[in-house]
Design a protein around this nucleic acid. Structure first.
Length: 291
DNA sequence: ACCGCACCCTGAGCGC
DNA sequence: TGCGCTCAGGGTGCGG
């Protein structure tokens, strides 16, 4: 699932395909709640524009166009943003993968889940966005327009500090992990990295936020930034659907210590990693190493 | 104000 | 082999 490191990796690698190239046309699928801006309006707004800058805010990508309007993308759970020249088996369903010859597996042609296809006047590779579950979002903002979604976001998780986290936890009875997932507190932190940061900091995910000490908040913030930066270095985590824009996998899934490792030995003490449901999400932790 | 929960969606993986 | 069921989860919005 695309969290901050996957979105940042996507931003860095899709930027060369987007920046400075004039958009010739945009193809979309039918209206659905994936499109916060109706597809027809989106197509009209993007035609003829060039992307001047591509930024990331939390898990959102924000492309500023040459008329000062903005294209905002969220990859949701299963979103994939990639070059039409990319090749990866992750771009195909498992059932399709199974029946195809190895060399054919790599090829991808737009399917019903390919909601956005941006073509350029230079005739080069297109930029495609695919999202099977449609938990992702596409939004176009006219020049000067604001978005409640973006305005709600808190401090970017890469800039997490112990002080800010400590302040945010005071008086809060929610589990510390649920608070870490609150995008208004730390934008960009998702399930994988919340679990990993809490393990590294030795704090149990279920602990009420207000029971977390200042020293622990400092450890959590420091470890969160560390795991996010390390994941960006390795190209993010490819556990289910995530692929980089060129079709390559990330490698951080090999370094995760607790996420989706239920029953495996804790890398620190050997006790089996536990999985519980917390706030409608799975949480993974070690009972002995996390208090 | 805060918190827990239902909901949006589709593919994977399971049991029968 | 194939059907039907359950589960996964980011973010929003509602009811208590």
């Amino acid at each position: 699932m695309p969290e901050l490191p996957e979105v940042e990796t996507t931003r860095r690698r899709i930027a060369p395909l987007l920046l400075g190239r004039r958009i010739a046309s945009v193809a979309t699928t039918q209206p659905s709640y994936f499109f916060l801006t109706p597809p027809a309006k989106l197509r009209a707004a993007l035609a003829g524009r060039r992307c001047a800058a591509l930024a990331r805010r939390g898990k959102y990508l924000v492309a500023t166009l040459d008329d000062a309007s903005r294209l905002v993308l969220h990859l949701g759970m299963t979103g994939q943003l990639f070059s039409s020249a990319a090749t990866s088996p992750r771009l195909l369903r498992a059932s399709a993968r199974a029946v195809l010859a190895p060399e054919a597996q790599a090829r991808f042609t737009p399917d019903a889940h390919t909601h956005l296809r941006i073509a350029f006047e230079d005739g080069g590779p297109e930029v495609w966005m695919r999202d099977a579950r449609k938990f992702g979002k596409v939004l176009w903002l006219a020049p000067g327009a604001t978005s409640e979604r973006l305005d709600r976001l808190g401090e970017d998780a890469l800039g997490a500090t112990g002080d800010a986290l400590f302040a945010a936890t005071r008086g809060r009875v929610v589990a510390i992990k649920s608070l870490l997932l609150d995008q208004a507190v730390l934008a960009g932190c998702g399930n994988i990295y919340a679990d990993e940061a809490l393990f590294a900091a030795g704090v149990r995910p279920t602990r009420a936020a207000r029971r977390v000490t200042r020293a622990e908040c400092e450890r959590i913030a420091r470890e969160l930034v560390r795991v996010l930066e390390r994941s960006i270095e390795t190209g993010g985590s490819s556990i289910n659907d995530y692929v980089a824009p060129d079709g390559s996998d990330g490698a951080y899934q090999d370094e995760r210590r607790v996420y989706a490792r239920e029953g495996e030995p804790c890398p620190r003490c050997g006790a089996p990693i536990r999985r519980i449901v917390l706030g409608q999400r799975s949480a993974h932790y070690c009972r002995t190493c996390q208090k």
